[in-house]
Design a protein around this nucleic acid. Structure first.
Length: 376
RNA sequence: GGGGAGAUACCGAAGCGGUCAAACGGGGCAGACUGUAAAUCUGUUGGCUUAGCCUUCGGAGGUUCGAAUCCUCCUCUCCCCA
C-alpha cells in the first residue's frame, strides 16, 4: 500500500492524499460505507460503485466469520468475488463487537470468547485467528484486533485495556509477517490507538502505535457516547503524534460535522453506519441540514429529496413520496434514504478534498459544519 | 315477524359499583441511532391556568355517598330463524 500526500492545508491539519491498493486508488479524505456482512445494507453494489461513487467499503470479521462462515468466503475466492465489489475493502477485526456485544463475551489477555448472537455457540477470537480470517476474507486493509472501550471508562480499566490492545497488536504484526495473502494482492495491517478519553493514555498509545511503523494507523474507542469536544480533543492529540506520511483512520465516525472536524484535525479515512442506519430510520443528511422525512410537515412537500444531490434518487423522488414510503413501511423508503445519505457523505468528503487542494478548506469547513447540523 | 348479541377514546378491544381520563393492540405525532445483534428502539396520544381542575365510555332519566359498570325507556348496529 502506498500513501501519497498531495496537499496539506495551511490553516488546519487537513490533508488531501491518495492511497494505492491492490484494488485501485482511494482519494483522501474518504468516507467508507459500512458493509458489515458483505453488503452495504439496502444498496446494490452497482449503485455503491456508480451512483454513490464509493472508493472503498467495509466488511466485518466477526459477522462474516459467523455467517456465511470463513470457509464459504474462501471458497468464493474472497469477499471481492463473493459480493462483486472490485475496489478496496477494509475489514474491521471484531474489536467493535468486543464493545457492542460486551454482554455475551469474555475477555482475557489471550483473546475474546464470543457467544454467537445468532445461535449462542461459543467462538474464540485471538489476534492470530482474527488475522487468519481477514486473510481469507481478502481485505486490502486489515484491522488489528483491539478492544473498543466504552464511555465512560474507568482510568484503570482503560489503561489495562490499552495494554492488552498493544500486546494483541504485537501478535497481529508477528502473525501478519508469518502469513501470506491468499489471493495475489497485498494486505495491509492498520494498528489502532486506544486510551479512552485520557490524554496521557491516548498519548502513550499513539506513540506506541507510531513506533510500529505501519502503513496506516487508526484511532479507535471514540464516538461511543463521549461529548463531541472530547472526541475532537483526543483526535487532535493523537493526530499530532501519528506519522504525517501515513493515512489516519478515525473509526466509526460519524455525523457530517464530526467528519469535517476530523478532517481538519488531520484524519484521512472515516466509516460509520449512520448514513445507512439512520437512513433506514428516516433521517436524511443534506448539505443544508438534517431532515426527518417521517415528520408530518413533509406530507405534501412535492419538492425533490435533494435538489442539489448527486444521486439519481435525489432527482427521481419527492419528499412527500419518500415520506409516504416510510409511513407505509415500504422497504424502498429505507433504500432511497440510505442511497441518498451515502451519496451525500461521499460528496462531502470529495468537496472537502477539493477545498483542501484549493486552499480554502478551513473557512469552507466552518460554514459547512453549521449548515449540515441544522434541523430542517 | 320470532329469538339472540352488542354500542367504550382516531380505529379495534379490555373493563362490569370506588384504586378509571379508562388496560392492551393498531394508527397518529415526536425523539434516539456514530469501527451495524437495528428496515430497530423509546416517548407521547381528551382539554386546561397540569402535585389540581374540567369534559368523556350511544341518548334521556333513575338508584347510590359514589356509575363506563346497576335499573327504566329510547336510538342504532350485528347475528340466527322465518
Amino acid at each position: 500500500m502506498i500513501f501519497e500526500l498531495k496537499k496539506t492545508d495551511d490553516k488546519s491539519s487537513a490533508r488531501a492524499g491518495e492511497i494505492t491498493t491492490g484494488h485501485g486508488k482511494i482519494k483522501t479524505p474518504i468516507f467508507m460505507p459500512v458493509g458489515t456482512v458483505g453488503s452495504v445494507k439496502g444498496i446494490h453494489i452497482s449503485d455503491v460503485k456508480n451512483d454513490i461513487d464509493a472508493e472503498i467499503i467495509l466488511g466485518n470479521t466477526y459477522h462474516l466469520y459467523l455467517r456465511p462462515g470463513t470457509d464459504i468466503i474462501e471458497k468464493a475466492g474472497g469477499l471481492h468475488k463473493f459480493n462483486g465489489w472490485d475496489k478496496p475493502i477494509l475489514t474491521d477485526s471484531g474489536g467493535y463487537q468486543v464493545y457492542s456485544l460486551s454482554d455475551t463475551r469474555k475477555l482475557t489477555n489471550e483473546g475474546v470468547v464470543f457467544q454467537s448472537h445468532i445461535d449462542g455457540s461459543r467462538h474464540n477470537f485471538t489476534p492470530e485467528n482474527v488475522i487468519d480470517i481477514q486473510r481469507k476474507i481478502g481485505a486490502d486493509i486489515i484491522m488489528a484486533f483491539d478492544e473498543c472501550t466504552p464511555y465512560p471508562c474507568e482510568y484503570n480499566y482503560a489503561r489495562n485495556s490499552m495494554d492488552i490492545t498493544h500486546s494483541w497488536l504485537d501478535r497481529c504484526i508477528t502473525h501478519m509477517k508469518n502469513t501470506e495473502p491468499l489471493y495475489g494482492y497485498e494486505q495491509t495491517l492498520f494498528p489502532i490507538v486506544q486510551g479512552s478519553t485520557y490524554k496521557d493514555l491516548r498519548k502513550k498509545s499513539a506513540e506506541y502505535i507510531a513506533s510500529c511503523g505501519a502503513d496506516g494507523n487508526a484511532i479507535g474507542g471514540l464516538s461511543v457516547g463521549e461529548p463531541h469536544e472530547m472526541m475532537y480533543e483526543m483526535t487532535e492529540l493523537v493526530c499530532g503524534i501519528l506519522p504525517k506520511d501515513k493515512p489516519r483512520y478515525l473509526m466509526g465516525v460519524g455525523t457530517p460535522a464530526n467528519i469535517l472536524e476530523g478532517i481538519s484535525h488531520g484524519v484521512d479515512m472515516f466509516d460509520c453506519v449512520m448514513p445507512t442506519r439512520n437512513g433506514r430510520n428516516g433521517m436524511l443528511f443534506t448539505k443544508n441540514g438534517i431532515i426527518n422525512i417521517k415528520n408530518e410537515k413533509w406530507k405534501d412537500d412535492f419538492s425533490l429529496i435533494d435538489e442539489e444531490g448527486d444521486s439519481y434518487v435525489d432527482k427521481q423522488y419527492t419528499k412527500a413520496y419518500l415520506r409516504h414510503l416510510f409511513t407505509a413501511k415500504e422497504m424502498l423508503g429505507g433504500m432511497i434514504a440510505s442511497q441518498h445519505n451515502l451519496a451525500f457523505y461521499l460528496w462531502l468528503v470529495r468537496e472537502a478534498r477539493k477545498h483542501i487542494i484549493d486552499g480554502d478548506f478551513a473557512q469552507w469547513k466552518n460554514v459547512m459544519v453549521k449548515k449540515v447540523a441544522q434541523r430542517l
